[in-house]
Amino acid sequence: MSVSEQTAMAPTGSAPDADDHIAHDAAAPAHHTSTGLSNEKLGMWLFLGSECLLFGGLISAFLLYRSKDVEGMTGPAVGDLYDIPFTSVSSFVLLMSSLTMVLSLSAIQRADHRRARTWMLTTAMLGASFVAGQVYEFTAFVREGLGYTTNLQSSAFYTLTGFHGVHVTIGILMLVSLFVMSLRGRLSAEKTETVEIVGLYWHFVDIVWIIIFTLIYLIPA
């Protein structure tokens, strides 16, 4: 086979490039990548894409088991125990923590470290009150006779909301670490992206709750 045919196999310049950005220097430091995007941020987005399938599975398991009519089901149905005003407040708290998170990022991008720290801590506190609310909700449910093993719905409910709660807790830990790093001056100007990446995770946890709040709490079985 001739060289010209060989070349013809390769996409020529006119071939559509699957990728908007062009390869550059692979060995150079971060922010100078083939796509021009940072490795860490791309990695976080990939992880979040993957998390969609995790929460999707847990939500599906709950929806499947809530809609199931089990004869002689032990214990109460989850839907009968919801305290909608209470959950609305804690949903609102989590939603507002997204605002404080983004304000923290915006502050640190302006190199306003003090304000960034304040908002970081506020975000962590809002997250913590959400988790505290969840703990309260769980104990209230258990007092009403709905334990983890009581019935199909209860297992699915506690697993789903518990997974979400663990995600929030991990987010709080990351925020506190950021706060400490910032206090000790380790969050330099080049590292504001770390805050952005933690922020992405935090907002993701928030949007998962937006879905859970509607699908699990508000829409009746």
Partner: peptide, 28 residues
């Protein structure tokens, strides 16, 4: 993540007595 969900559900069933695959409780 999909198998992770399945594995977690099974693990909770076996270790903590959840009902995801407990047919007596009506599981599918």
């Amino acid at each position: 993540p999909v198998i992770t969900v399945a594995l977690f559900l099974l693990m909770f069933d076996r270790l903590f007595g959840a009902n995801f695959f407990n047919v007596e409780a009506g599981a599918d």
